[in-house]
Design a protein around this nucleic acid. Structure first.
Length: 482
DNA sequence: TGAAATGTTGGGGCG
DNA sequence: ACGCCCCAACATTTC
C-alpha cells in the first residue's frame, strides 16, 4: 500500500443500501485502499417510473442510516442530485483521483441502458469498472428453458432455478476497508421527503436501514415455520414484512435465503420445513418478476399478452378515486387501501383482493392500479409491481385466468373471519358484529344503529353490486377471447 | 395464490 | 322392509 498515492475507488450506492453482503464493496475492500461512497440521485434518468413519493421517503431515511454508519467508520455518504450521472461521476473521478468505479446492478430497462453507457465511457478512460449482483439470488439471464428462452410460467422457472444449486452465501465486509470523508450536500437537498409529512405514519410500522432490517429478519425467521398457515391472515403478522428492505437492499436476499434455510435445518418437522419452502418460493416470485422485467422490458407500460391492447378498460376518475381512498363500500378492499395510505404497505393477500376489485369489478386498467401502488408503497419495485398487476389483470405471464374473480365478502370471511383487520383500518365499522363486518349493507337496521353506522353517511354502500360487476367482467374478458 | 353452478352421494324421515 | 324425497356434504365443471 502506498500512502501517498492510495488506490481510490468510487462506489455508487443504488438499491443495495447496506455494508454487509455488498459484492461491489467487498471487491473494493480487496483491491483498493480507499473508497468514496456516493449516492448520485438522477431522477430524470429513471424516465416515467421515477420513484414514487412513499418510496422516496423510505429511501431518504435509508440513506440517512447509511450516512450515519459510514460516519461512525470515519467516512461519510456523498449525496447529490444531478441531471447526468455520467457527467457528475466524471467530476468526482477528476476531483478525487479515482481509479476504479463500482456498483451493484439495477434491472430497470432505462437504468440498464444508462449504466451500460457509463461503463463503456469510463472503461475507455482507463478506469477499472465493474458491476455486481447485490439484489438477486440468480441473474435474470442465467435461467433459461431448454430452447434457451426465458420462462413465462413460474413453476418451471422455479424448478430450473433451484436445480442450479443453492444461491451464494452472504459475504461479510472486510474490516480493512477505508471510507473517505468528503464534502457533500445535505441529504435534505435531494428533496426526497414530502413537505406535507404524510409519510410520518409509515415509521410506526417500518424502520429504515441495515440494523432495522436485521431486526426484522430476526423477528421473522423463527416465524417462517408457520409461514404457510399464517401468511394469508392480514390481521396477523405472518408475513416477513421485509419487502422494503429487499427492494432498497438494506437486507440482502441471500442473507434471508440462508437464514431461512438454517431455520429449516434446525427443525425435525416435515410440516415446518414445507411451510418455510412456501416462503422461499415467495422469494422465487421476486426473482421471477426481475426475470420478466429483464426479458420483457416493455411490460411496465404494456401488457405482456398483446391482445390486451384492445381491452375496453373503463375510464372513470371518480370510481378510481373511491378505490384509492378506501371508500368502495367493500370493507376488506377499503381496509387494504387505508392500510396502504397509512403505512405505505399492504398485506399481500389484501393486495390481491384490491387489485382484483379494481381490474375486475370496476374494470379500470391494471396500469392505474400499478401507478397508485407505485406512488404509495414504500416497497414499490418496478419488477414486482409490474408482475403483480399484470397477474391480477390477467394480461401478464402466468397470470390469473380471466374468470378468477375474488369475491370480497368471501375473501374477508375466509381470511379475516373475526373482522380484526377491517376494524383496525376502518374504525367507523369497529362496533359492528363480526357476522356483518364484511357486508354491512346486509346487516339488519337495528345492528347498524347499535354500531352507530349510517350507511351512505358514516360508511358507503357498495359502489357496485358484486354479482352484476362479476358478470360484466366475465363478459368483457370472455369477449377478448380468454 | 377462485367462485358459482351443477352434479353426486348417502343418511334419515316418512309413507 | 322398501322406495322416495329432501338436503347437506362433497366433488366436478364451468365461468
Amino acid at each position: 500500500m502506498n500512502q501517498k498515492n492510495p488506490r481510490r475507488a468510487l462506489f455508487l450506492f443504488r438499491l443495495d443500501l447496506r455494508l454487509q453482503d455488498n459484492p461491489a464493496l467487498n471487491y473494493i475492500a480487496e483491491n483498493y485502499d480507499e473508497v468514496l461512497c456516493a449516492f448520485v440521485h438522477a431522477p430524470s434518468e429513471e424516465g416515467k417510473w421515477v420513484a414514487g413519493a412513499a418510496s422516496q421517503s423510505f429511501l431518504h431515511f435509508s440513506l440517512q442510516q447509511i450516512d450515519q454508519t459510514l460516519q461512525s467508520r470515519g467516512g461519510n455518504l456523498y449525496s447529490v442530485e444531478v441531471d447526468s450521472t455520467l457527467e457528475h461521476i466524471q467530476d468526482l473521478v477528476t476531483r478525487h483521483d479515482i481509479q476504479g468505479l463500482f456498483w451493484n446492478r439495477r434491472y430497470e430497462p432505462k437504468l440498464i441502458e444508462r449504466d451500460r453507457q457509463i461503463k463503456e465511457h469510463f472503461l475507455e478512460k482507463g478506469l477499472e469498472v465493474k458491476s455486481f449482483n447485490a439484489s438477486l439470488l440468480w441473474e435474470p439471464w442465467e435461467i433459461k428453458n431448454q430452447q434457451g428462452n426465458p420462462f413465462q410460467v413460474f413453476t418451471p422457472f422455479w424448478k430450473k432455478a433451484t436445480s442450479l444449486g443453492e444461491p451464494n452465501s452472504p459475504q461479510k465486509l472486510s474490516k480493512n476497508i477505508r471510507f473517505m470523508k468528503v464534502k457533500s450536500d445535505s441529504l435534505d437537498s435531494l428533496q426526497l421527503l414530502s413537505r406535507l409529512g404524510w409519510d410520518r405514519g409509515f415509521y410506526e410500522h417500518f424502520h429504515c436501514g441495515e440494523e432495522a432490517a436485521k431486526k426484522a429478519l430476526d423477528v421473522f425467521a423463527p416465524k417462517g415455520a408457520r409461514y404457510q398457515s399464517q401468511r394469508d391472515l392480514p390481521s396477523v403478522e405472518g408475513t416477513s414484512r421485509l419487502s422494503p428492505h429487499l427492494h432498497f437492499g438494506s437486507m440482502s436476499v441471500r442473507e434471508v435465503w440462508h437464514r431461512l434455510r438454517k431455520t429449516q435445518e434446525s427443525t425435525r418437522s416435515n410440516k415446518e420445513r414445507a411451510e418455510i419452502d412456501v416462503y422461499l418460493k415467495e422469494l422465487g416470485w421476486r426473482e421471477f418478476a426481475h426475470h420478466l422485467l429483464f426479458h420483457f422490458p416493455m411490460t411496465p407500460d404494456r401488457a405482456l399478452r398483446e391482445k390486451f391492447a384492445q381491452f375496453p378498460w373503463v375510464k372513470n376518475a371518480s370510481q378510481l378515486r373511491k378505490w384509492q381512498k378506501g371508500l368502495t363500500g367493500y370493507p376488506i378492499v377499503d381496509a387494504g387501501m387505508r392500510e396502504l395510505w397509512a403505512t405505505g404497505w399492504m398485506h399481500n393477500r389484501v393486495r390481491m383482493v384490491v387489485a382484483s376489485f379494481l381490474v375486475k369489478h370496476l374494470r379500470i386498467s391494471w396500469l392505474e392500479g400499478a401507478k397508485w401502488f407505485w406512488d404509495t408503497l414504500i416497497d414499490a419495485d418496478l419488477a414486482s409491481n409490474t408482475m403483480g398487476w399484470q397477474w391480477a389483470g390477467g394480461c401478464g405471464a402466468d397470470a390469473a385466468p380471466y374468470f378468477r374473480i375474488f369475491n370480497p365478502y368471501l375473501q374477508g370471511a375466509k381470511f379475516d373471519p373475526e373482522g380484526d383487520y377491517v376494524k383496525r383500518w376502518i374504525p367507523e365499522l369497529s362496533a359492528l358484529s363480526k357476522k356483518w363486518i364484511h357486508a354491512p349493507h346486509e346487516a339488519p337496521e337495528e345492528e347498524l344503529k347499535k354500531a352507530g353506522i349510517v350507511l351512505g353517511k358514516t360508511y358507503p354502500f357498495p359502489m357496485v353490486d358484486h354479482k352484476e360487476a362479476r358478470e360484466a367482467a366475465l363478459l368483457a374478458f370472455k369477449q377478448l377471447g380468454g
